[in-house]
Design a protein around this nucleic acid. Structure first.
Lengths: 335, 335
DNA sequence: CTGAAAGCGCTTACAG
DNA sequence: CTGAAAGCGCTTACAG
């Protein structure tokens, strides 16, 4: 392997001059520059980034910590962040926390040790171990989807309560009164906020809320739907994520019920297949790409030192009205 | 920030001793060890990985280059590889080539500069720029899904021709004679092999092949299906990936045709939603998780120096028979 | 077992 | 503009 010294020797200059030519920042006599570039070409020299990183005390790497990259929601986010990083010459380390504070802690520690320049974090818990250390090291953090208890961190979140509120109001406007809610884990911010929005809409219409907990999972979502159906006369459901909707659809199929006639449905999340189903699903779509672009922008503002004060960006869900809620397709009102 | 010197000073030992305690490899007097650990705890000292990497001339990082992490197929692969890396204390840099040799080249160059220890690569082309340099640097490469022209690289691939062969034979066994094939880009290895398997099955049954090119895309898949339907009397289709199947389903819906009665369908790929459709799709499932686990295993065998000779692992598709091909669900024969 | 010293491959004040 | 020198924070033969 050739190093900067090999190149310097061949070009008949000092290593410092080689470095100056390659970093391109300072001026170097054209003749020297020429000779250096020739030597670089001859030797097929590539600078060793490890050495540069150590010397400069910085890397050009960022970390992204998600629950699970297999979740298309997060895959989309990672993709957008990676695009932004690539455009700026940065690399991306991906980490899957599986929603466990322990793995998350191990990853944050690792990212700190690697001296990444910034982190996009989907926090598994509101006060992650290691977040203070990141602050000490001057590594900016952008929380994604959920907030984090750190006054210095940026955040990009979505208005869960408002989404549930609008979905529920929509069903009420269609004349439904017995509207059930298949909720996610109530101990998570997302789960709690979505439930709260639903309850708010029901309460303002003087209707009785009917909640069941599907834990954000397919099997439990199915059970939750069955529980709500068994309990009585529900005519519509709001479902707090797409996995549970799969469970709800399984429950409907098993009972030979059809949406929207037997049961009107609105689901959080608008996955690829929501439109392919019969009937197509009315869905609350999270603007993931826009949110991820925003998160990347916030992060690089911090990395480049263009901003000091923390920012929190709140995005709205988009209600995509399709047939499962009882709407005639193609006709939709305001959310 | 405290460094190894700060710790050494506080513990009253040399930096070398601190290093020995922390690397845990060599023996150190218990009393010294104690004092060092105490100093580490007092100062909340964390070793700087950049320095260690430079000094040791190795990192504990691997690279994964996929077409696009948003494709669930690759998201699943990345996840499996990341799990294997995490278990061994390695980090993962993800790169999206978008199937372009240029981006791929830039990423391979970057991964080489970062001195990653190994790479899992979904090659955008059979002879990627930079692969020779990786060989020179001793960075092992495992090709995934497609082969690479490098005698030293490992590969984990799937038998595309065999999959198409079995799917087509199955439709023939059901009595179909006019079977069409919605193929992918014929200039890709995957596209060509899948088409070849289809043609082989038709030829052995003395049937005339009917191919249309859907470019692996939704819109073009729809066009390809329409083309095959317009050309005449096809009663069954083999579709070379799931995106084109979406297009095929759109075409069917537009013409008010139903699977399997109007048209029997078998698709490559078994995405999440294949089972949710009505009728559920008969699909050729690629054992992605097993393949990715194998790729990670091969890579770490190389990294740890346990193996020198290249290996190529070929996996079979699993034909998951559901209703779209005309089978009665739950009853399936051998592939 | 332990420490002084060299060195990984760069970059960057500093002096000229 | 250019070079000699120091140094980033570690690790590891080497000598004791």
């Amino acid at each position: 392997m050739s190093t900067i010294k090999t190149v310097a020797a061949r070009a008949g200059v000092s290593p410092a001059t080689v470095s100056r030519v390659l970093s391109g920042s300072e001026r170097v006599q054209p003749a020297y520059r020429e000779r250096v570039l020739q030597a670089v070409a001859d030797l097929d020299y590539r600078p060793n980034r490890l050495a540069r990183n150590l010397r400069r005390q910085v890397t050009e790497t960022i970390g992204v910590v998600v629950s699970d990259i297999e979740n298309p929601h997060f895959a989309q986010m990672v993709r957008a962040v990676e695009d932004a990083a690539f455009a700026r010459g940065f690399r991306v380390l991906v980490c899957n926390s599986d929603e466990t504070p322990e793995k998350q802690g191990a990853y944050l520690e690792m990212l700190a040790a690697e001296r990444v320049r910034g982190i996009v974090l989907v926090p598994a818990n509101p006060a992650p171990d290691g977040i203070a250390r990141l602050r000490d090291l001057g590594i900016p953090v952008v929380a994604f989807d959920r907030m984090v208890d750190d006054a210095t961190a940026d955040a990009v979140i979505v208005d869960n309560a408002d989404g549930a509120l609008r979905a529920t109001r929509r069903l009420i406007a269609y004349g439904h009164r017995a509207i059930g809610f298949v909720g996610g884990r109530p101990d998570t911010q997302t789960g709690a906020e979505r439930a709260a929005g639903y309850v708010a809409a029901m309460t303002e219409a003087r209707l009785e809320p009917r909640l069941a907990n599907g834990e954000f999972r397919i099997d439990r979502g199915k059970l939750a739907a069955e529980q709500l159906l068994d309990a009585g006369d529900v005519t519509a459901l709001v479902v707090a994520n797409n996995l549970m909707t799969v469970g709800v659809l399984q429950a409907l199929r098993a009972r030979r019920l059809r949406a929207p006639d037997d049961l009107a449905l609105i689901t959080f999340d608008d996955p690829f297949w929501a439109e392919l189903l019969d009937p197509p699903l009315t869905a609350l779509a999270q603007p993931v790409r826009r949110m991820a672009d925003a998160a990347a922008r916030l992060l690089f503002e911090r990395i480049s030192g263009r901003r000091d004060h923390p920012r929190c960006l709140v995005f709205d869900f988009e209600l995509r009205v399709r047939r499962s809620c009882g709407a005639v397709e193609g006709i939709s009102g305001a959310g």
